[in-house]
Amino acid sequence: MRTSTLRAYFIIALLMLAPLSGFGADLTIEQQTAKSQGIVLYNQFKAISATPLLKIAADAGDPDAQYYLAEAIRKNKKYMTAEALGAYEASALQGNIYSMIRLAGDKNDLCVAMGNCPKGRKEPEAWGKMALDTASLEAAKGNAEAMYLMYRVTGDDKWLEKSAEKGFAFAQYFLGIRYRGGHGFFLLPSSRAEAVEHLMKAAAEGGYPQGMLEYGAILAEKKDLQGFRLWNEKAAETGYATAVFGYGSYLGEEHSEFGFPYDPVRSYALLHLLLELDGGGGMPDYVNFALPDISAQMTVEQIEKAKKLSQEWKVSHPPLSFFPDKL
């Protein structure tokens, strides 16, 4: 996919409601923009900055924004606040299965422990049943994401396998990780390795950036360095912060063992871009450690060119993201 179209596809994806997010009220352009920007910040581990933007769309009744708002508040406060609980409940009552699963896992709430929750409030078991019923209904329609959520609700590996078979990229990646970690039964180690490679290839081709890096690593082990370089670049083009750092670092090596061309200007541009990730994740620390060695080999003119290229990349590519698991 050409990089000039990647950002457009990303924006379109954010503007569309996910099938399992419920059916909230239509948002105005301003509310939709706030939601999109809020999710971008949340995925950059900037929960505090994301909160007021997500609240705009959440207050308008958008179930996906309500879920992300609740996540941002809960992660920032390190516990389930009343505001986060209310946002989860509003989202879940509109059909958001992710919110139902969060509420089903909220068993440490004091009123739950004491059995004296306010009248009308659903307890975790009730939310768990609602999540199961809703996900089951969607899974029966062939929804691959719902099949993955059935796995999260039931813990039954068959649902993870079904989701992967139906093409849900995250399920393919996650199942590959589980197989590599020893789950599943395989007669031969080679059969396990083949299954992992098949799943990571599918996840990569399905657009999941962590799958791209995993598949690239498998190709590198097989001495397919061209494939390794290809998937590292593709992962970086999605905006995946880890991949941007890795790809940028490779380009800054004068003698790359993986065959990346030496391009200090492009290397500096990509690493410099990552400095905006000053929330969680510690990315600036990695960049500030690597950047001096690269800049030491560059002229002042090259550094200025790199900074300009950094801004051009930002405009033509999806926003930077750590792509955290939604659950």
Rank of each mutant, 00 (worst) to 15 (best):
F10G: 04
I177T: 10
A269P: 04
K222D: 06
V153Y: 00
F174M: 13
Y151E: 01
W159K: 05
P292M: 09
E138R: 14
A104Q: 05
Y9E: 14
I294R: 02
A70D: 11
L309T: 07
L213K: 15
L225M: 15
S163T: 11
T299L: 04
G120Y: 06
G227L: 02
I97Y: 02
Y9S: 15
R7C: 12
S256K: 09
M200I: 03
L271K: 04
D62L: 06
A113G: 03
K201T: 10
P319F: 15
L271H: 03
S21A: 15
Q37S: 13
G176L: 04
D59C: 07
W313G: 04
A217E: 15
R178V: 04
T154C: 11
G281D: 10
I11F: 03
I303H: 03
I97T: 04
P318Q: 14
A84W: 14
A195G: 10
S310V: 07
N43L: 12
F260D: 00
L53C: 09
G248F: 02
A164Q: 01
G176P: 04
G246R: 14
Y67V: 00
A306H: 04
G61L: 07
G22N: 10
L20Y: 08
P324E: 07
K107S: 06
T299I: 03
S310C: 12
E71K: 11
R74A: 05
M80R: 13
T299G: 04
I48R: 05
R74F: 04
L54E: 00
A72N: 02
A290M: 09
A104K: 01
K122F: 07
T299V: 03
S4T: 15
E254P: 06
G142C: 00
A193F: 02
A243S: 13
R7F: 11
Y68P: 00
Y250I: 01
E161T: 13
G259D: 06
F174T: 12
N143P: 03
I11K: 13
A18L: 08
I11A: 08
S91N: 09
D26N: 05
S256I: 12
M212T: 05
A92W: 00
V196D: 14
A65Y: 12
